[in-house]
Simulated scan of single mutants.
Amino acid sequence: MRVAFVGKGGSGKTTLSALFARHLLASGAPVLAVDGDINQHLAEALGHHGGPFTAPPLGAHLTGIKDYLRGTNPRVPSADSMIKTTPPGRGSRLLRLLGDDELHTRHVRRAGGVPLMVTGEFDESDLGVACYHSKLGGVELYLGHLVDGPGEYVVVDMTAGADAFASGLFTRFDLTFLVAEPTRKGVSVYRQYRDHAREFGIRIAVVGNKVTGEDDLLFLKEQVGDDLLTHLVHSPWVRANEQGRAQGGLEGHNRHALNVLRAAVDARPKDWDTLHRHAVEFHLRNARAWADRATGEDLAHQIDPHFVPGPPALT
């Protein structure tokens, strides 16, 4: 299952992404965390200490990723003609979670024991000339070519706010957790995300964070309604962990909230047809908007009408 954490900047979505990934790993589940935020802090939140995190960033190796994933697909003759929304077809290289393949071997490193891939930060050459979403192309292609199985999890820390809708990446998940603080600003992003998500039938569940009492919880229930799945209370353990002096473990209520999140994910049926339909829809949107002109090709031709998504494609 693919899970995204979104929310207002400062809401705690990176912290929640890390807590959930570590919670899954502790249970013995196969899990991959992906840092898709412009502020690359997920490695530290997972427990990486010392020097810089050394995983080669996806955003810096996009051409190589395209070349690998296109495989022998005759509809994608070169990396130059492949864009971030190009869906897989017959001949494409499909991935198994944490498989023994070139992409995972190159880009996955462990942070606090959790396998992690990163998109990479803005560097000096990007400033003023590039959009961060261009770096997210590697994540979009990865999820588009991934065939994850039962009991496997991908946890993605997304960009902050409604900015996550600037690409089709938001349609690549089985469930999206929106982290909301009990403030008006905290729930404003929820309303934006809810309205955009409804247009495409995207399932979201709200996770209240930094709740300090009944008044906070009542506020979230009034503002969010039935979309509120669970909440986490203010956590001295998380604060101590962020200060490098963690001891003991996460509070009982917050551990219970993580169990609720996992139960919600596990209860979602895997809908390969919808995932692929969204991939095709956003590929056509991008082709018409800019990519046909940029490549000089009709990229609608890249859609393989006979491709069957999901496990059957592996054979």
Rank of each mutant, 00 (worst) to 15 (best):
H196R: 13
V211G: 08
R203I: 06
R191W: 10
R198W: 01
V189A: 15
K221M: 12
D216Q: 07
I204F: 07
R198G: 15
G208I: 08
R203T: 15
L218W: 00
Q192M: 10
T212Q: 12
Q223N: 09
Y190E: 07
K210T: 04
R194T: 00
G208N: 07
Q192P: 01
A205C: 06
L220E: 14
V187P: 01
R194K: 12
D216M: 06
E199N: 03
V207P: 02
I202C: 05
F200D: 15
A197C: 09
R191K: 14
L217I: 08
G213H: 11
G213A: 03
D216G: 11
R194N: 01
Q223K: 15
G213P: 03
G201S: 04
F200S: 12
E199T: 13
V206R: 09
E222M: 06
K221N: 07
E222R: 14
G225C: 06
H196V: 14
L220S: 12
G213F: 11
V211E: 07
Y190T: 09
I204R: 02
E222S: 14
I202Y: 01
D216P: 12
A205S: 12
D216K: 05
I204Q: 08
E222C: 02
D216W: 09
D215K: 13
Q192S: 13
F219P: 01
E199F: 00
S188F: 05
G186N: 02
V206H: 03
N209A: 10
S188L: 09
G225F: 09
E199R: 14
A205G: 08
I202N: 08
D226A: 15
L220Y: 11
V207N: 09
G213S: 02
H196I: 13
L217H: 12
H196P: 00
E222T: 12
F219V: 03
T212I: 05
K221Y: 02
D195E: 15
R198P: 00
D215V: 14
N209W: 08
L217K: 11
A205H: 04
F219N: 07
E222V: 04
T212G: 14
G213W: 08
R194P: 00
E199G: 04
I204K: 00
V187Q: 01
R194G: 00
A197G: 04
I202H: 10
D226G: 08
R203P: 11
S188Y: 04
R191V: 04
F219D: 02
V211T: 13
F200G: 09
V211N: 08
G208H: 13
A205D: 05
D216L: 11
G186V: 05
V207C: 11
I204E: 07
E222G: 05
G186E: 02
L217F: 04
Y193H: 00
D226P: 06
R191F: 10
K210V: 04
D226N: 10
S188K: 13
D226H: 10
D226R: 15
G201K: 01
H196F: 15
K210Q: 14
L218D: 11
G208K: 12
E222K: 15
G225K: 10
R194I: 00
G186D: 07
G186P: 02
G213E: 11
K221P: 05
N209R: 07
G186Q: 03
